[in-house]
């Protein structure tokens, strides 16, 4: 009952907490060309663990913004305009906070949960593994 597979079907979060689960889900997303959504989700988690005193943190915030928020990728497409604007302001004004991507992460997580996660659980990638 507490096998990894049982956990994967419990929730998106429990799937992502498992190394094999996260890896398999990313393979599925690659096929759908939306693996950026997952990378962004992990980047937000990693960013929250950083140290504001570290000069690296500011550069990572800018890198996340440039890679996922500012362009026309799958993440930017799924974020609310207000959320993107808010992050843009923070980066431009160098108001870096560890929770500055939280809202965006919530929006992306919601999108993953509603579509990709459900599709994953009925995909051949998942079924073959099972």
């Amino acid at each position: 009952p507490d096998s990894p597979l049982a956990r994967w079907t419990k929730s998106l979060r429990s799937l992502l907490a498992d190394q094999d689960g996260a890896h398999l889900f990313r393979t599925f997303l690659e096929r759908e060309r939306c693996e950026d959504a997952l990378d962004f989700w992990f980047a937000c988690n990693g960013f929250r663990q950083m140290d504001l005193q570290d000069a690296k943190t500011r550069r990572v915030a800018r890198a996340i913004y440039k890679r996922y928020v500012e362009g026309r990728g799958v993440v930017a497409e799924h974020l609310r305009a207000a959320t993107r604007a808010c992050i843009r302001e923070s980066v431009k004004k160098q108001r870096i906070e560890l929770r500055m991507f939280d809202q965006a992460q919530t929006e992306i997580e919601g999108g993953l949960e509603e579509s990709a996660y459900r599709a994953f659980l009925t995909s051949d990638i998942y079924l073959d593994y099972v």
């Binding site: 992990f42 980047a43 990693g46 550069r59 990572v60 890198a63 890679r67």
Partner: peptide
């Protein structure tokens, strides 16, 4: 000095689940 891409990759990897 690390490129921003490297820093981003490092940030993503740090949050990935580790083998139990």
């Amino acid at each position: 000095i690390d490129s921003e891409d490297d820093l981003l990759q490092e940030c993503i990897s740090s949050a990935m689940p580790k083998k139990k």
